[in-house]
């Protein structure tokens, strides 16, 4: 594994996992002795199905408690966008308001903040609509700005565009890049190599719950440090 510190400027928010291990029914599903996300990102987590991408993301976010090891980060504000957006059975605006209230934003500020974000996502006209009647792309946009409205230092995304069409995917990617340029540390799972190239500054490649390699995006795609990753890029089945 190469040290990314030499090549990338140090971001404000770093994240590291030490001795991370997670089991399901006695089987080790994630085993990461050391993973340092020191660069400014976005970091893309790649790997075949069953490599432990989603589990790793949940462990990093703290949704799952590891059987061993710990996550260290100075970031106190974190948010996550899920593969299938989980929208409350309320209006679009009420979804925003709920997240802001949970984040401790005062009632006086919530409405304006929510409307600003809805406007940015092109959803201002649908503020009063039932959130779950939005289209798939709109739902994921709402889930994304609901996460961003709480001003997270780290934003985790778990294949947020896997069920979206290209134009909806493009909208989400633009919003992710904008958030990254405003200083939000992005850690994103994807199985879309093109997306990893478009968005990622560095790639973490997982295989069988282990980090096979962690490199800057351009060198990863040119000369991956791991044979499994090289095979994956060629289109081999990583058995």
């Amino acid at each position: 594994m190469r040290d990314l510190l030499e090549e990338k400027p140090v971001a404000k928010t770093s994240l590291a996992a030490h001795g991370l291990r997670f089991e399901i029914d006695g089987q080790t599903k994630v085993d990461i002795p050391l993973l340092r996300l020191d660069g400014e990102g976005p970091t893309m987590i790649l790997g075949p199905n069953g490599a432990g991408k989603s589990l790793t993301l949940r462990l990093l976010h703290g949704l799952l408690t590891p059987h061993a090891g710990q996550i260290s980060t100075p970031a106190t504000r974190q948010a996550m966008v899920f593969q299938k957006p989980v929208l409350l059975r309320r209006s679009v605006l009420a979804n925003m308001d709920y997240a802001l209230r949970a984040a401790g934003v005062s009632r006086a500020k919530r409405r304006k903040l929510a409307l600003d974000f809805l406007h940015e996502a092109g959803l201002a006209g649908k503020a009063k609509q039932a959130a779950r009647t939005l289209s798939g792309g709109e739902q994921q946009r709402l889930a994304l700005i609901r996460a961003l409205a709480t001003d997270p230092e780290i934003l985790f995304l778990d294949e947020p565009t896997s069920s979206l069409d290209p134009s909806a995917t493009q909208a989400i990617e633009a919003m992710v890049l904008r958030a990254a340029s405003h200083g939000t540390r992005i850690v994103m799972v994807t199985h879309d190599l093109g997306q990893a190239k478009r968005l990622g500054r560095d790639i973490v490649f997982l295989h069988h719950g282990r980090v096979a390699c962690h490199q800057p995006t351009d060198t990863f795609f040119a000369t991956p440090d791991s044979a499994v990753a090289a095979g994956y890029l060629r289109g081999d089945l990583p058995i």
């Binding site: 949940r58 976010h61 949704l63 974190q78 948010a79 996550m80 899920f82 989980v86 409350l88 709920y98 997240a99 949970a102 984040a103 709480t150």
Partner: peptide, 12 residues
């Protein structure tokens, strides 16, 4: 089952 992770993520 549907909400648990999202609500945990929001800090509820």
């Amino acid at each position: 089952a549907e909400y648990a992770e999202q609500l945990r993520s929001l800090g509820v």
